[in-house]
Design a protein around this nucleic acid. Structure first.
Length: 509
RNA sequence: CGGGGUGUAGCUCAGCCUGGUAGAGCAUUAGCUUUGGGAGCUAAGGGUCGCGAGUUCGAAUCCCGCCGCCCCGACCA
């Protein structure tokens, strides 16, 4: 009997919804397409923020904050950018409500002279500021980041993966020349790769997006792609080299050493609460989430087996001192986060709540453990042996001494498990498009297909458009061209011509 | 935004075809029992049946309109 009502094999989308709800991560809000992020889910986001913010600052960026509302005219400044975002924009048009026939409506006399849009991203309003802040080569490079909420009016929403409002971090930088801007673009990409793999235990493939998948207005777009347990790809982070597109549109120029006016080269990069969806679909099992220890808001949860008897006090004291002892330890470069769950509920219910949330180590301590100086615990990443829950017992001293090793080991085990799935499910050997059609065309519902690694001649324009259409018929997209490329290439699977690049093709979220 | 499904207690759902103003299990609350592990018994609380208009003496049920959610598609960092 599993802790969730639906298993991954039965119905993956339903299972995903069940984890989000039963692990107490988030719920739907009365506002269409938006979610309420609950404490365990938000705690995970705070951990992401804390660690990534440290890495962003270590790279020399500073944080700042721009308004959530952007004048409508700003978004029109970069042509491709408009095309990319115009269709999913929330627009603020009035500044006052009025009761009309008993219902509150926007007051017709309070219409804004210029509507405001809720930011779908901030390139335009930040570019405007950059144009004022950057006067001289001495002002460069300018490297800034903001943590913010974003609004995109999506037609179809899914919790954490695509919601009308989401939380993210957007870095924006300006540089004197192309080489330096590209180097910053790659630095951010590598920062995301390392962060995902080390901290989220989420193995990814870093690479460059094809022309048709670029960010609107970018010269080149790079991504990290992760493989979910249903074989689909999830774009988990992006980094863009924007060239001088936004600099031209918004007049971001600096006076160089020779006194001439030169356009700056800009970049932007971001990750969002979508990462949490990626963690769920990578590490979740039929008992709920398995939160990687480095990421978990609580790494060790202690459930005292209280029985409403006098010895409960001794048991509570034992658990409290154990938690204090654990809290004095350092794991993953920070104090260990331990909690004694003293909520007045049945111990078994509390145990399963923490199993669903995915607390890495769940200690169940009864009077006998306390008397014997022991700790009985379960490891969430390897919860069961067969159908049965497997529990372990150590002396208290050994448990405290090994907590660090246990948590680090679990982090590694989760990563290795996901890494093996990623590496083991990227298929090679597609000689031509017909091979690809044969493999991806004949599928049963819910069948695991993984990704395809193929060679192509990297067509552009109309020819690329056609490639996109052919893939679309198989519900496939090009994910990226991995940074690590082979020494030589075979034939392009689309045209038969000599290939110039290796790319990953997959179904995606 | 197109196709399909769905909306009844906190959750999962029955009732709807064949109108007579609500049911089960789990959860919640209380009491008793139980206690090395998702407990048992007893009792109680909880629903303007998604919203609005209509037919009718009477609508969860029939008709019309709208909305939300889920899946597929289109779209999309």
């Amino acid at each position: 009997m599993h802790a969730l009502k639906v298993t991954r094999a039965e119905d993956f989308p339903e299972w995903y919804q069940a984890v989000v709800r039963d692990a107490d991560l988030a719920e739907l809000s009365p506002t269409r397409g938006c979610m309420i992020i609950k404490p365990w889910g938000y705690g995970i986001w705070e951990r992401i923020q804390g660690e990534l913010d440290r890495r962003i600052k270590a790279a020399g960026c500073e944080n700042y904050y721009f308004p959530m509302m952007i004048p409508l005219s700003f978004i029109a400044k970069e042509a491709e950018h408009v095309d990319g975002f115009a269709k999913e924009m929330a627009v603020v048009t009035h500044h006052r409500l009025k009761a009309v026939d008993g219902t509150l409506k926007p007051d017709p006399d309070a219409e804004l002279t210029e509507p405001l849009i809720l930011r779908p991203t901030s390139e335009t309003i930040i570019g405007d500021a950059f144009s004022r802040w950057i006067k001289s080569y001495r002002d460069l490079p300018l490297m800034l980041n903001q943590w913010a909420n974003i609004v995109r009016w999506e037609m179809r929403t899914r919790m954490f993966l695509r919601t009308a409002e989401f939380l993210w971090q957007e870095g924006h930088t300006a540089h004197a020349d192309k080489a330096e801007a590209i180097s910053e673009t790659m630095r951010a990409l590598e920062m995301y790769r390392a962060f995902s793999e080390d901290f989220l235990a989420l193995p990814v493939v870093a690479g460059e997006k094809p022309e048709n998948e670029r960010f609107p207005g970018a010269v080149s777009t790079f991504s990290i792609e992760a493989m979910m347990q249903d074989g689909k790809a999830l774009q988990a982070g992006t980094s863009h080299y924007l060239g001088t597109h936004f600099a031209e549109a918004q007049n971001i120029r600096y006076q160089d050493k020779d006194g001439g006016m030169t356009l700056a080269h800009t970049t932007s990069w971001g990750v969002s609460t979508r990462l949490i969806g990626g963690v769920i679909m990578t590490h979740g099992d039929d008992d709920g989430l398995r939160t990687p220890p480095a990421l978990a808001p609580r790494q060790v949860v202690i459930v005292p087996m209280l029985r409403g008897k006098p010895e409960d006090d001794d048991l509570k004291a034992y658990c409290a001192s154990l938690a204090a002892e654990l809290g004095a330890l350092n794991v993953f470069g920070a104090p260990l986060r331990a909690l004694v769950d003293v909520k007045d509920a049945r111990p078994a219910d509390k145990r399963w709540d923490w199993v669903r949330r995915g607390a890495p180590l769940i200690c169940e301590i009864g009077p006998r453990d306390a008397a014997g100086g022991q700790v009985t615990f379960i490891k969430r990443n390897a919860l069961r042996e067969g159908e049965k829950v497997k529990s372990h017992t150590l002396s208290r001293a050994d448990f405290v001494a090994q907590a660090d090793v246990l948590l680090r080991g679990m982090q590694k085990e989760l990563f290795n498990e996901a890494k093996a799935r990623l590496d083991g499910n990227i298929r090679d050997g597609f000689a031509n498009f017909a091979d690809l059609e044969r493999y991806f065309g004949e599928d049963k519902e819910g069948e695991f297909k993984g990704w395809a690694r193929v060679h192509w001649a990297k067509p552009t324009g109309a020819a690329l458009e056609e490639v996109g259409q052919r893939l679309k018929a198989l519900k496939l997209t090009i994910r990226n061209a991995p940074l690590q490329q082979p020494a030589s290439f075979g034939a392009c699977i689309f045209t038969g011509a000599s290939a110039v690049e290796e790319i990953l093709i997959a179904r995606s979220y």
